[in-house]
């Protein structure tokens, strides 16, 4: 087992552990704690991206998700009343039904992933095929040639989202 394999297990364990702490933290039900653990999840996932040779996406993941998106989240949490969440008690019925339904869907996932053995793995790339690297150069080349139209469409989407947010945040929302 080489170093990349060990690193995979380490970061996969970190990702799953922090992900679980986002959802069900035994020590705190404060949304700020959840948000901070989501930042840690995203950072360990960026490490997994590096192991998968997706260097550019790892950087984007940290800059956009752990940076911009989570700052937005923490800012909105700051505006709200946090103490109220702690006072509410958890309804057992909801937790039990949630765990049962998630267990069922997870067993479907794992059965389909692990149950087929070698028959479902992708055909091995012959011999010394170069392993693809997702650096900024090759990704940008693809983005501005093959995926030109989606790139333009996404810019319109961002504009629409921006206008929508400004409209929604107006004081006299009609």
């Amino acid at each position: 087992m080489g170093l990349p394999d060990i690193l995979f297990y380490v970061f996969a364990a970190f990702t799953l552990l922090f992900g679980l702490l986002v959802v069900a933290n035994p020590f705190s039900r404060n949304p700020v704690t959840s948000a901070m653990f989501l930042v840690l999840t995203i950072i360990s996932m960026a490490c997994l991206f590096v192991l998968l040779n997706a260097f550019f996406l790892a950087a984007v993941q940290i800059i956009v998700y752990a940076g911009a998106v989570m700052v937005l989240f923490v800012f909105v949490i700051m505006l709200m009343d946090l103490k109220e969440e702690e006072r509410r008690r958890i309804k057992t019925f909801g937790v039990v039904t949630g765990i049962v339904s998630v267990g069922i869907i997870l067993s479907v996932f794992l059965k389909s992933l692990l149950g087929c053995g070698d028959s479902c793995s992708l055909p091995a790339v012959a011999g010394a095929a170069p392993v693809v690297e997702g650096d900024a150069h090759s990704l940008g080349l693809l983005l501005f040639t093959k995926y030109d139209l989606p790139f333009e469409v996404i810019s319109v989407l961002l504009l629409v989202a921006m206008i929508g947010v400004i409209t929604l945040s107006k004081k006299d929302l009609k």
Binding site: A24, V95, S101, V102
Partner: peptide
Amino acid sequence: ATGLLGVIIRRNLL
């Protein structure tokens, strides 16, 4: 599955 569990069992919108 962890994320789905969170959406189902947590009651806070954020």
